[in-house]
Amino acid sequence: MPDNPHSKTAALTTAQVAHVAKLARLEVAPGRIEEYRTQLAAVLGHIAQLDAVDLAGVEPMAHPFESHNRLAADIPVEGLSIEAVLMNAPAVEGRFLAVPKVLAEGD
């Protein structure tokens, strides 16, 4: 956990951008990594102004109203039909979504 995100921002490297792209499941062409690095570094540099805000004793606020979860009545309701679920699928085999092989031979 870095104490000071400024230093990390300034040091944002193409390797970090490539790593983040991988975490985000994005296939960024090698020729575009530097462009993204420059743009992301500029935004992160701006965001560093958050460090100047005095936050002593301030609790994080993830949601405007911090409402509690509202539970629905425990009554079964009709979900989407299989046809409705599959109607936008890019590849289907029978009643199933088709995907490339997940496990290699011998797994």
Partner: peptide, 12 residues
Amino acid sequence: AYYKRALQVRRR
């Protein structure tokens, strides 16, 4: 450094 801090600023 980013997300938690932003949520604190949000409360402010």
